[in-house]
Amino acid sequence: MENVENKVVIITGATSGIGEATARVLAANGAKVVLSGRREDRLEKLASELGSCATYLKSNVTNVEDMKAIVKLAKERFGKV
Rank of each mutant, 00 (worst) to 15 (best):
M1T: 04
V4D: 00
V4K: 03
E5Q: 09
N6D: 13
N6K: 13
K7R: 15
V8K: 12
V8F: 04
V8P: 15
V9C: 10
A14W: 01
A14Q: 03
A14T: 06
G17E: 02
I18F: 13
I18S: 13
E20S: 06
E20L: 15
A21K: 14
A21L: 15
T22C: 12
A23M: 14
A23Q: 09
R24P: 15
R24F: 01
V25G: 03
V25N: 08
A28G: 10
N29W: 12
G30Q: 02
G30T: 06
K32Q: 01
V33N: 01
V33I: 06
V34P: 15
V34S: 05
V34R: 11
L35A: 05
L35E: 05
S36R: 07
S36M: 02
G37E: 03
G37F: 10
G37R: 02
R38W: 02
E40A: 08
E40W: 13
L43C: 10
E44D: 03
K45G: 08
L46S: 02
L46R: 02
A47N: 04
S48W: 11
S48Q: 04
S48Y: 03
E49M: 04
L50K: 04
L50R: 00
G51T: 09
G51A: 05
G51V: 00
G51S: 04
S52W: 06
A54V: 00
A54R: 00
T55A: 03
T55N: 01
L57W: 13
K58P: 15
K58V: 14
K58I: 00
S59Q: 06
N60T: 08
N60S: 03
N60Q: 11
V61D: 04
V61E: 04
T62A: 07
N63V: 09
V64L: 11
V64I: 07
D66V: 06
D66R: 09
M67H: 09
M67A: 02
K68S: 02
K68R: 13
A69H: 15
A69S: 13
A69D: 11
V71E: 02
L73S: 10
L73P: 15
K75T: 14
E76S: 14
E76D: 13
G79A: 07
K80A: 11
V81H: 06
V81Y: 09
